[in-house]
Design a protein around this nucleic acid. Structure first.
Lengths: 352, 352
DNA sequence: CTGAAAGCGCTAACAA
DNA sequence: TTGTTAGCGCTTTCAG
């Protein structure tokens, strides 16, 4: 078989990418030198490096991640595992992490665990095994089994918006966030404050910060000398619809509370929708406060406790990269600050 | 060197994954049989298949995607390229595509091209080259250069929300969508209808459906015997803030229009925010209609033209998978239906 | 500073 | 139906 066989002779094959051998040949060096040179490795003579770079450009050479990964054991990609990409919080966290990771030269494999089927498939096949160098999980409520599977991967792991023993994490202080929201209401004179939480789904797969926020709510009540049990209404579903439905139930009561704390902004938004449709003035009759500072909070003039989501994604990525660099003395727990944003969905209670 | 060297003897190595050889040994067959068997390939004796499966389970074996990819030339992953994951439309489209792709056994590599730096890096390094088997681009306004780079990949390609010569696509009829929105306003008696569009960013990287929607707006006007140029206001930025800002400019006019068509719901939402803050009644004084049926549209009671986003993502994934299966006679252009959703942000003009 | 050689862990003809 | 034999395209000791 003649070496000179032209492309025309193998019409069915994908047009072959230039390989490291082609670059080596063109640059007049060995493949190993090309490899080293292209990765800025070791000491490669400047002149050589230049020749290699030029040859690579000329041939539009890109390394094969598979070949490289197989040979080196590094994949240059990280897995980002998220329960719902479509929700504001997650989408922003993913964006923040993605940008930081790509900038560092890593690819991002997205694993969206929106439904039970996807979840099961994920945790029992563990598709991450040799596919990524590190894993970032976003606010995933993990069972012991899940946790085990993740640890078994034995690779750098960071959680965002949740804590896991011995694992680095980035989050806000959810207890404090809720406490501050309630304190704001208390300062305005509210004494009858209901909290709306959302239910985790059948597999216990809900928003992981809920319990902490409930705790913060209760702490604030207790500190004000009120009944520390509070008045927690659990919505039957999550998000806007959950908030709307829970608020509807609250409105069936003979006596309305003067204020409502929602577990997160989407819930608050749903609650506001219900109130509006029933022509209950906000904050005239009922004040509503959320947590997150969702992009729609400003549109609805919702008072909320803001947390920097995209930044948390970026920080999480950074932690991951640090671990990959071999740094990292031990797991760290980065707690980023939140801040009360007062808008016009809260005000003094009627008659105050 | 003894073959029996125990793990303890290489304490620094990552705990080695079982390899196909281990499985083969345990099952008492050759590696190729394991390979075939595990992929449900060809005719492998049922008994053998069972033994292999058991051995694999016992050793918690997972194929190395890199090794497999290198050997077979298939990566079992697809690249999803999106301008902004954080926006409702894209997040939902990504979710839809992701779920369908994962279900088919493909991994999803996310490329978020949010800023110019990410964009440039992407198009000139083309990180997709040997990394994925197919590419899905979401509403990406592509320059000729971009298009060329994408085509040079020479792999299955599908676009969502945009068309590209010779490439399969999934989208709505944006011209018709806008036309219907305007028709609704015309039916209500409006004659003075402004359209707000958003600007593409400096690199021309904006929402790609804009021009079609403007065209639909103009067609509807023309059909009603009105000035077909219409009255188009271009916002200085995109999304909610763009809509808010454009609406503010419109309000400086001596005479307000009676209705506004926003290029998409987020723009409409921004416009509504401005109107509310200025206490201009909607729809009493000005009607507002959007396009998309963003999840917040119901909260704000926004009349809009709904499009099924998640479904489009799923359809796009399906097209990609079909192409990978070698099917696909030629490029197809799937146009999914839209539907006017009348809520209370539109109504007859004052005095009508 | 550079090259030669030996894999990384699979898959895919080709035999048997 | 299964096994044997070559690679896939890199990286990485180890020599030089």
């Amino acid at each position: 078989m003649a070496e000179g066989t032209e492309d025309a002779a193998r019409p069915d094959r994908r047009p072959r990418h230039a390989s490291i051998l082609d670059v080596a040949a063109l640059a007049g060096v060995s493949p190993s030198t090309v490899s080293r040179s292209l990765r800025g490795h070791e000491t490669v003579a400047a002149a050589t490096r230049r020749r290699v770079a030029e040859a690579a450009r000329e041939l539009a050479y890109t390394v094969s991640p598979h070949a490289s990964g197989l040979a080196s054991g590094r994949t240059l990609s990280v897995g980002v595992v998220v329960p719902f990409v479509t929700r504001w919080f997650y989408a922003n966290a993913v964006a923040g992490a993605h940008d930081a990771l790509r900038e560092a030269g890593f690819d991002v494999l997205l694993y969206h665990l929106g439904d039970a089927a996807a979840r099961d498939r994920f945790f029992d096949r563990m598709p991450l095994a040799r596919r990524v160098d590190a894993v970032l999980t976003l606010s995933l409520p993990l069972t012991d089994e899940h946790t085990l599977a993740l640890r078994a991967l034995d690779m750098p792991l960071v959680t965002l918006g949740a804590r896991l023993d011995g694992v680095s994490s980035v989050r806000v202080d959810d207890v404090a966030a809720a406490r501050n929201a309630v304190r704001h209401l208390l300062h305005q004179g509210h004494r009858d404050i209901v909290m709306i939480t959302t239910r985790q789904d059948d597999e216990g797969f809900g928003f992981v910060a809920g319990p902490d926020r409930v705790q913060g709510y209760r702490q604030a009540l207790a500190a004000a000398g009120l009944d520390a049990r509070g008045d927690v209404v659990e919505a039957g579903t999550y998000g806007i619809e959950g908030g709307a439905e829970a608020m509807a139930r609250i409105m069936e009561r003979p006596r309305l509370p003067t204020a409502v704390l929602a577990e997160y902004d989407e819930v608050a938004i749903g609650a506001v929708r219900t109130l509006r449709r029933s022509s209950v003035p906000v904050p005239g009759r009922i004040s509503v406060v959320g947590i997150d500072d969702h992009e729609m909070a400003s549109v609805l003039d919702l008072t909320t406790v803001a947390q920097p989501v995209r930044e948390q994604g970026a920080i999480a990525a950074r932690l991951l990269l640090d671990q990959l660099d071999g740094g990292a003395a031990g797991p760290v727990d980065v707690v980023v600050p939140t801040r009360l944003v007062v808008r016009s969905s809260t005000g003094p209670p009627q008659g105050a």
